[in-house]
Design a protein around this nucleic acid. Sequence first.
DNA 1: TTGTAGGCGTTATCAA
DNA 2: TTGATAACGCCTACAA
Lengths: 338, 338
Amino acid sequence: MTRKRRSSGRATLDQVAELASTSPITVSRYFNRPQHVSEATRQRIAAAVAELGYVPNLAAGGLASAQARVIGLVLPSISAPIYVDTIQAFSDRVSRYGYQLLLASSEFSLEKEEEVVRAFLGWAPAALVVTGCQHTPGTEQMLARASVPVVEVWDYRPDRPYPQVGFAHDEVSRLAAAFLHERGYRRIAYAQTPIAGDLWAALRYEEFAACLLRDYGLATRLIEPGAVHPIAAGRLAIEEIMRSGDIDALFCANDNVASGAVLAAQRLGLRIPQQCAVLGFGDFPIAEALFPSLSSVRPPARDIGEVAADRVLEELGTLNPDASTKALACTLAPREST
Amino acid sequence: MTRKRRSSGRATLDQVAELASTSPITVSRYFNRPQHVSEATRQRIAAAVAELGYVPNLAAGGLASAQARVIGLVLPSISAPIYVDTIQAFSDRVSRYGYQLLLASSEFSLEKEEEVVRAFLGWAPAALVVTGCQHTPGTEQMLARASVPVVEVWDYRPDRPYPQVGFAHDEVSRLAAAFLHERGYRRIAYAQTPIAGDLWAALRYEEFAACLLRDYGLATRLIEPGAVHPIAAGRLAIEEIMRSGDIDALFCANDNVASGAVLAAQRLGLRIPQQCAVLGFGDFPIAEALFPSLSSVRPPARDIGEVAADRVLEELGTLNPDASTKALACTLAPREST
DNA sequence: TTGTAGGCGTTATCAA
DNA sequence: TTGATAACGCCTACAA
């Protein structure tokens, strides 16, 4: 068999067609609209496909149809527990409609996000889902010119050109502030995450402090443990609280920080919540298991994945528009630590 | 401007070439071998690219060159802490050589793995990295016929046709058994993970029990908490141990299970390690923070990612062969829980 | 239900 | 250093 110089060595539609004694286009139909192929032909094709181990070349297919059935999803981190449900829900939903998921992490960096968006656009995806409303000018330009549907997730702001599926992060802070105040805590601190690119955590702090001052007349102490692991940051926060002795509640940037705080408190003999309450953000699986169990603000992670998938499918014409664009809601899961 | 019906609406090489008053092939060179393009031409092209917001279509490029610069990586889970370092290291390394990472999770299911491998092969990747040596016959056939380099990670067995980058899971069990025995524990249990597809955990149990019996004359109690979250499984294991009262050390399928055990012990008043030692597998970030801190067997997660990337790049001719194919080593991180 | 012709956006090849 | 030409593998449009 003489193989052409540039070929990849894989079976092609033509080879399948030849083996099945039919034409390439019929084999193409066999994959895309099997109903339009007669039963007898179908069986011959199926046999040929199996014999050759044929796998359709999606790049060629996408190129020819100017419509690759892939959707890019860019999140700040693919391993952080907080995004796992979103990925799962989104993936489940779009794959049901025949779309594949291209997944990438921006590592909490807007520059890295730009890289990743460029890489994704190179694959001519059917749609692109990015995280949040803050991007580099380069990213903004690419998104604007991409001529594919774009959806922004995990945030909700009024002034954006793209559909948004998320919640208002300042609402989280008001929820947390009201909750802690209502429980009687008055000397409150916020433990920042050491992840420099977590802009939302910074935003949550600002609104948390503003809200406590505006609505309850309370000052907020900011604890910034510097660049260490989030769990270690929680420990450092507890150490600082024990040193100063004037804090009775700690709101943490996320549940990793909060877990570190709870565990360190235990190790160092600070009683939670009697001496200091701890409230987290994210409601990670560990929250419930901790001792004492961790109270946390739970973001609608799974809903974000599902609704974002629906929005995308609507934009692609696969689903009928629902048009109920509104912010999703966070809830508070009170447990032993407050 | 009359746009052809089938075009995707994005800027193309031709448009860039026209705007830069040159030919498409020169623009192609500008991206792939800039040295072969004169400075003046380069500047004109750069301006045109910027003006049009041109992003190269990688699918078309891959099709034309029969070599997409993508590498597929399939892991059992992309969110499990245990694989995070591998992903990171692998991604860093291959992206340095201009390869993109296509990431997917098999969800600990061989069937799902087959799906994912098929999807990846559809993109004509330059190489494929899969997890472990166990695959469905369908997957095996695809891999064999893919005519792209295949590397298997996170396991190490002698009889496979592909390069392997990992460690022997039975070695983990011998390490754990020797460690616990040496510390004087004699009534030992193994807490299974509730993840049905985690075949390695089952393998580790078998060799653990075999080794304890063969080398130390000890029976092993298997605790199987059924289908719940791993952390809850750890709690159930502790409850069973407290009920029976005849176990002095617990080896867990992974650190999630072990964390659940440590936290539950604390809540229920079982002193660790005095009344029962706990040993985990994976050395997740939480291990060090727990109270008492968790002893764990640490797999070479980061090394696996790096070495796998090197193997792949060698197979692709990008890196000179090193040929030092041998198993990587796990180490034991002893902490307070044993 | 099946087939023909042509094109999707890029790169390899060869020539200038 | 630059360019013309012909693939790459598949799908749309149209015809039979």
